Amino acid sequence: MKWNPQDYAKNSDAQLKWAKELKQSLNLQGDESVLDVGCGDGKITAEFATTLPKGRVVGIDSSPDMIAYATRTYGAHVYANLSFACVDARSLDFEQEFHLCFSNEALHWVDDHQAFLGGASRSLRRGGRLVIACGGQGTAADILQVFSELICCEPWKHYFDGFHNPYFFYGDQDYSLWLEKAGFNIERLELIPKDMTHVGKEGLAGWIRTTWMPFTQSVPESKRGDFITHFVETYLQRIPLDQDGLVHVRMVKLEVSALKS
C-alpha cells in the first residue's frame, strides 16, 4: 500500500481525538520513556515529546513515507527528545528501554499480534505499561458490508479477483490469552463501541481514501474517485447524514492496559 501522509494528516481527526483521550488517562510525570507503535504522521508522538520534557520518545511505523513525513515535521530538529524509525510492529528489537509502549489505531493492520506483544514485553522495563487502542471485533461492520457489496458488482468486481480483507479485528478473549502468554498482567481489557463522525460527504470520502487503501488502491487511479463516490453514496443511502450534516460510523475499539510482570 502507498500511504499519503499529508492527506492522512488532514483526514484523521477522529483518530487524533481518540488518541488524546487515551493519552490523558496515562498520568505521565514528565520523565518517562515512550515507544509509540504505528506512529503514522507523528502528531501524537510529538505530543508525547512535549508532555515529557525530561523523557525520551521513539515513534515507529512500517511505512517509510509516514516516517519520512514525521521526521521532517516533528523530528529532532524540533524536539530534542524525539526520534522516528521505520520498524515493523512484529519485529520490535528494543530491550527493556521503555516505561510505556503505546499504540493507537494501528494494530488492526498487523496480522501477528502475538509477535507484537512479545516484542512489546521485551521493550518494556519491569512494571512498564502497555496501552493499546485499535479496531476490535465487530468494528466498521457497516463500512465493510458496503465494500463487500461493491467489490462484487460491476464495474468494480474484476479489480478484486483474489482480494483478501487485510484487517485484523480481534476480540478480548483472544487478547487475554496472548497478553498473559507475553508476560503481562491485565489492568483493563475491553471492547468499546464508539461513534465516529465525519463532516459531510467530503469528510467520509477523505477518510475512505486515506485509511481504506487496500480497497481503494485496488482500483486504478483514474477510476478511484468514482469508486469512492459510489461507496459514499451507497453508505449514505443506508445511514444518512444527521441534522448537523455529520456522517456516523459505528466502530468498536479494543482497548488494553497491562503491566509487564
Rank of each mutant, 00 (worst) to 15 (best):
K2N: 09
N11K: 02
L16K: 05
W18V: 03
W18P: 02
A19R: 01
K23M: 15
S25H: 05
L35N: 04
L35Y: 04
G38P: 09
F48S: 04
T51C: 06
V58I: 14
G59F: 07
G59V: 09
S62K: 08
S63N: 01
D65N: 08
M66G: 06
Y69K: 12
A85E: 15
D88A: 06
A89V: 06
E95Q: 10
L100F: 02
N104E: 01
E105T: 01
L107N: 02
Q114N: 05
A115I: 04
S121M: 04
L124Y: 05
R125F: 03
T139M: 10
A140Y: 06
I143D: 09
F147T: 10
S148Q: 13
L150M: 15
E154S: 05
F160C: 05
F163Q: 09
H164C: 05
F168M: 01
F169Y: 12
D174P: 05
S176G: 14
A182G: 03
A182M: 03
W207T: 04
V219E: 03
K223C: 03
G225R: 06
G225T: 07
G225S: 04
E233L: 06
Y235H: 10
R238H: 12
L241C: 06
D244G: 15
H248N: 14
H248C: 13
V249C: 13
K253R: 10
S257G: 07
